[in-house]
């Protein structure tokens, strides 16, 4: 038994020596720590959170990071109630939320919210007014916009979504969204839904866009990372990780990790604009 343990020790130390140079400073801070970090909320964040969790959990066996979605509203509420350690939001928490829960906000990336359609759709450019009419249900067939003769299927998110809040305010100027719109629970689900439905239109975090969906230019500006960065594309927002009062322990380490060069690299890889 002892021998076996020793062998494992030797093998794993050799292994970690070999791998160690790949990890930077911030990850090493987790050394010797144990416990759980519970994360919930914004669904745009999930890809980055999962990757960060994977990096940490692969290296440190005594740390567990759980990642759940639910939307920005849920993230803010749950961190405020102390149900999770980090509550993510794809919108800035409202002043009353900050005050009520004594939230500390950490904005670690910039993201945009863009309109997307299925790549098979010929309509890939809209004016803001057309967009409003589509989402309110006034325009209900693609043929009106020069596309195929088929009803438009509008996809939207629920009230807890930060992506919805940003889109509704900045793209729809707070105009109605039709009650016929189909609901999806997250950014990931929005992308999947649009990719599978040739007649769909929806809105999704720019970081989540890939070749399975086609971005729609709004008043001539395509929602891309570059256009968000340059400020040309206006529907932008920060990605926040919020904690209840000042973070400490593992939570602090995790926040630090997000702002470290590796954390910021993950954000970049997942399609967001790092803040540093």
């Amino acid at each position: 038994m002892k021998k076996a343990l020793f062998q494992i020790f030797v093998i794993s130390s050799i292994f970690s020596l070999l791998v160690a140079p790949c990890f930077g400073e911030a990850l090493q801070d987790f050394e010797g720590q144990e416990g759980t970090i519970k994360i919930a909320g914004g669904t745009a964040h999930i890809s980055v959170m999962k990757e960060a969790a994977k990096q940490i959990m692969t290296r440190y066996k005594d740390i567990v990071v759980t990642v759940a979605g639910g939307g920005s509203g849920l993230g803010i509420k749950q961190v405020g109630e102390g149900l999770v350690d980090i509550g993510n939001s794809g919108r800035k928490p409202k002043p009353e939320e900050i005050e009520k829960y004594k939230l500390k906000m950490f904005k670690w990336a910039i993201d945009g919210v863009g309109v997307v359609v299925n790549p098979a759709n010929k309509v890939q450019s809209l004016t803001k007014n057309q967009l409003k009419d589509i989402f309110s249900g006034k325009i209900d067939n693609w043929s009106v916009l020069g596309g195929v003769k088929h009803a438009i299927t509008v996809y939207t998110r629920d009230e807890a979504s930060g992506t919805r809040a940003v889109f509704w305010k900045k793209a729809l100027d707070k105009e109605n969204i039709s009650t016929k719109a189909l609901f999806v629970p997250s950014n990931g689900a929005m992308k999947t839904a649009i990719a599978n439905d040739p007649y769909a239109i929806g809105y999704v975090s720019v970081g989540h866009m890939d070749e399975t969906v086609a971005p729609v230019a709004l008043d001539g500006v395509t929602p891309t990372l570059d256009n968000v960065k340059s400020g040309q594309y206006k529907i932008a927002r920060g990605l926040y990780s919020n904690t209840k009062s000042d973070p400490s322990g593992l939570t602090l380490l995790f926040i630090n990790y997000l702002f470290s060069s590796e954390g910021q690299k993950i954000a970049l890889e997942k399609g967001f604009i790092p803040v540093k």
């Binding site: 999962k50 990071v65 759980t66 990642v67 999806v184």
Partner: peptide
């Protein structure tokens, strides 16, 4: 939840097969 690893205690969140299937169906 979607990501939790192997559950470490009774009070921890966890992953489960049916939820995994539901989750993948809408957001693979």
């Amino acid at each position: 939840v979607a990501t939790a690893g192997v559950p470490s205690s009774l009070l921890s969140q966890y992953e489960a097969l049916p939820f995994y299937i539901y989750y993948i169906s809408s957001q693979y």
